[in-house]
């Protein structure tokens, strides 16, 4: 694993989010992610971990606090959200591939539309990325012809095509059949080894333990505890974390 730098790439400060109906989704969450770091966010469902992830690229608005990504104040009214999002690739639980386009076209679309790449550049790039996730031979397949694991790998290639500074993963393996989880985690591990900055919301404790530089535990909309994986999993001091780990880890 490459060592993360000390440079802070994402700085979320005192982020809170209250839904219009009064539900408090996030309460004063502060999280720093350094360039090259892999941060895994774990926690029970409804703990706000996906919400936190989605505030980082403004897919979700916030009520108070701020998020600074690479010098850009993400939630400031004048910020160009499209620019912020080109810097942060996002991978969704449900893949969300564009079903009317082939795998190759899925990867090519945004670079051509947003970065104004030419068809040839975009195609060459997309072919390279599909090869990288092990799907060179599926370039002409439609999402409906691909397995869940293959679709998620195309989705990763699609996000990478924008040459993002950080990759945000929102439970990337939760919708997969158990036997397809490994191939996706393998691609993610490879990315981590190449030094990609990654924030991963996941239930895969094995992945968090093996790949993360830091594991963050959220519960009830609060960031409860964060530590390096060995410390996180071995000497959990915190009551809520202990009970969570007791439920998810094999005994």
């Amino acid at each position: 694993m490459t060592k993360p730098t000390t440079e802070v790439l994402i700085d979320a400060r005192e982020v809170s989010k209250v839904y219009p109906n009064g539900t408090q989704a996030l309460t004063n969450v502060s999280l720093q992610v350094r360039r090259g770091e892999v941060v895994c966010i774990v926690g029970p469902s409804g703990s706000g971990k996906s919400t936190l992830l989605r505030t980082l690229n403004a897919m979700e608005s916030i009520t108070s606090g701020e998020v600074i990504m690479d010098g850009l104040n993400v939630h400031a009214p004048k910020t160009n959200l499209n620019e912020v999002r080109t810097h942060a690739g996002m991978v969704f639980q449900q893949f969300n591939l564009f079903p009317h386009k082939t795998a190759l076209e899925n990867v090519m679309l945004a670079p051509m539309q947003v970065l104004k790449h030419t068809l040839d550049t975009a195609r060459a790039n997309a072919e390279k990325l599909l090869a990288k996730v092990g799907l060179a031979e599926k370039a002409q397949s439609r999402p409906s012809q691909l397995s869940g694991g293959q679709q998620q790998r195309v989705a990763i290639a699609r996000a990478l095509a924008m040459q993002p500074r950080v990759m945000l993963f929102d439970e990337p393996t939760s919708a997969l059949d158990p036997e397809k989880v490994g191939e996706v985690l393998e691609v993610m591990k490879q990315l981590a080894l190449e030094g990609m900055t990654m924030v991963v919301v996941t239930h895969e404790m094995g992945f968090a333990r093996a790949v993360a530089n830091r594991v963050v535990f959220m519960d009830g909309g609060e960031l409860v505890y964060q530590d390096a994986p060995e410390a996180f999993f071995s000497n959990a001091q915190h009551e809520r974390l202990r009970s969570f780990l007791g439920q998810v880890l094999p005994h």
């Binding site: 690229n57 942060a88 690739g89 969704f92 969300n96 564009f98 699609r158 924008m162």
Partner: peptide, 22 residues
């Protein structure tokens, strides 16, 4: 599905680009 618009927007496409192409 809402995820289609989300995925397109997360790639930095504008609302109109996402509407038009996705």
């Amino acid at each position: 599905s809402k995820g289609q618009m989300e995925a397109a927007r997360s790639l930095g496409m504008s609302h109109w680009q996402a509407m038009r192409h996705v």
